[in-house]
């Protein structure tokens, strides 16, 4: 039960932090970290997939409502949530019947870093490509994806390394 409450709080906190603080970061005009994806990344591994997808949709839509980008964040978040289990299997070997929450301790440092990097890259690439949909500036797009992903990844790894087990 505490896990559920904890997740509800982290949902609300991440959405507010994203729309009130991070969306105002406009460093160099390219960097806009999307930390809220951390919510999807820290959900327990064996969570039913349909529930994960629905949560991802609600999360994305909440961000969308605040930032006037109806549908874009929802699309990217559902997309990344769909591929989560496959990526977890790819980088870690979790025994049958275990249900760990992703972190440095359960995945091992290298496994966890790989998992974060791949997930954030997929999410940011989908999101920025969608945003640029009607609009061709390929190199700006690539720079935006890479720089923003880098900042998000560093933020997530920083937060996760502070967290005690």
């Amino acid at each position: 039960m505490p896990t559920v409450l904890q997740n509800i709080f982290s949902f609300i906190f991440l959405v507010l932090f994203q729309v009130l603080v991070l969306n105002n970061i406009q460093f160099l005009g390219y960097i806009n970290p999307y930390l809220y994806i951390l919510f999807i990344l820290t959900l327990p591994v064996q969570m039913p997939r349909w529930f994960l997808l629905v949560l991802a949709f609600i999360l994305g839509l909440s961000i969308d409502i605040f930032s006037n980008t109806l549908g874009m964040h929802a699309f990217a978040t559902v997309f990344v949530a769909f591929f989560r289990n496959g990526i977890v299997k790819l980088f870690t070997n979790i025994e049958e019947g275990n249900n760990p929450t992703p972190s440095f301790y359960t995945f091992g440092v290298s496994g966890y870093v790989k998992y974060i990097v791949v997930m954030v890259l997929i999410h940011h690439a989908t999101l920025f490509t969608l945003e640029a949909f009607s609009f061709v500036h390929f190199w700006i797009l690539i720079t935006k994806i890479l720089l923003s992903s880098l900042v998000t990844i560093l933020l997530i790894l920083g937060i996760q390394s502070i967290k005690t087990k």
Binding site: L53, F57, G71, M72, A74, F75, V78, F79, F82, F133
Partner: peptide, 17 residues
């Protein structure tokens, strides 16, 4: 069923966009 749910949610998002 999960794949269908995934597709449905993505279609909703896209139509919103």
């Amino acid at each position: 069923s999960v794949v269908f749910l995934f597709l449905i949610l993505e279609i909703i998002s896209f139509s919103l966009i």
